[in-house]
Simulated scan of single mutants.
Amino acid sequence: MANRQDFIYVILAIGIVLVLALVIKPAATGELPGLWEPEPTVTPAWTPSIPPQTTVPTPTPVPTWDGKPQTIGFIDPATYQIPSEETRLNMSTPPAGTAPGTTRWVTYATIDGQWSGTTGIVRVPSPMWRLDYSDTATTNDEIPFFNCQVVDAQDPNRLIKIVTLRLPEFIAMKGKPDLKKEQWVHTFYEGNHDYYFVINTRCIDSYHLKIQVPETYVGT
């Protein structure tokens, strides 16, 4: 019986030694046995966010001008919300001076007629242009009247220029065609814009308006 108890004590002693060796000592030193090792922490790799690509629209190419004058026609004034019976402004303007420097001008578009009317929209492609209204004729020396309003097509409330010719202007230029060509012209220092023209006449035989741009613009 004593031998059996001694055997049990030996087994218990061995068990205690194993527990101390496999559990207590690794736990005290921070080294856990393989079965108790914590799973490693996996840190996901940082991936920068890539914004979606935006497709840049291809600009519509602006056709170059071939140097040939275009004709601007007349339309119903109601297109621009202008009552046909509306009385136009009669504002006198001093004669316009000639273009600065030695700029040579070419005709980009023309407006031909005799009666009152409102033109269609024309886009002036150059940054500087001029309106030549020297070819305006009358055989009536009593009550001739010519009025041309240059209007911003994108803002009809904005009058760019009002040109008015009455009896004194016609008398002053009678028999002086060269002086008329020099003075009956106005230069605009704005461009690349859309315009239309409101024309009022009385006792006018004909008018031939020329929208002109610098010669250097042709083919650019």
Results as ranks from 00 to 15, higher is better:
residue 58 T to L: 12
residue 59 P to V: 00
residue 60 T to A: 04
residue 60 T to F: 01
residue 61 P to M: 08
residue 61 P to I: 10
residue 62 V to F: 02
residue 62 V to Q: 07
residue 63 P to N: 09
residue 63 P to H: 10
residue 65 W to E: 07
residue 66 D to F: 09
residue 66 D to C: 06
residue 67 G to F: 11
residue 68 K to C: 04
residue 68 K to Y: 07
residue 72 I to V: 15
residue 73 G to Q: 10
residue 74 F to R: 06
residue 75 I to W: 06
residue 75 I to N: 09
residue 78 A to L: 14
residue 78 A to P: 00
residue 81 Q to G: 08
residue 81 Q to D: 15
residue 82 I to P: 00
residue 84 S to V: 13
residue 84 S to D: 13
residue 85 E to H: 07
residue 85 E to I: 06
residue 85 E to R: 06
residue 90 N to E: 12
residue 91 M to P: 01
residue 91 M to N: 12
residue 92 S to R: 13
residue 92 S to Y: 10
residue 94 P to K: 12
residue 95 P to I: 10
residue 98 T to R: 14
residue 98 T to N: 13
residue 98 T to E: 15
residue 99 A to C: 04
residue 101 G to T: 03
residue 101 G to M: 02
residue 102 T to Q: 14
residue 102 T to W: 01
residue 104 R to F: 03
residue 106 V to I: 13
residue 107 T to C: 09
residue 107 T to D: 07
residue 108 Y to T: 06
residue 113 G to L: 04
residue 113 G to T: 05
residue 117 G to V: 08
residue 117 G to S: 10
residue 120 G to C: 03
residue 120 G to N: 12
residue 122 V to Y: 06
residue 122 V to A: 09
residue 122 V to H: 03
residue 123 R to A: 04
residue 124 V to K: 01
residue 124 V to Y: 03
residue 124 V to P: 01
residue 127 P to E: 11
residue 127 P to I: 03
residue 128 M to Q: 08
residue 128 M to Y: 00
residue 131 L to W: 08
residue 131 L to F: 11
residue 132 D to A: 13
residue 135 D to M: 12
residue 135 D to V: 15
residue 136 T to K: 10
residue 137 A to C: 05
residue 137 A to K: 14
residue 137 A to F: 13
residue 138 T to I: 08
residue 139 T to Y: 03
residue 141 D to V: 04
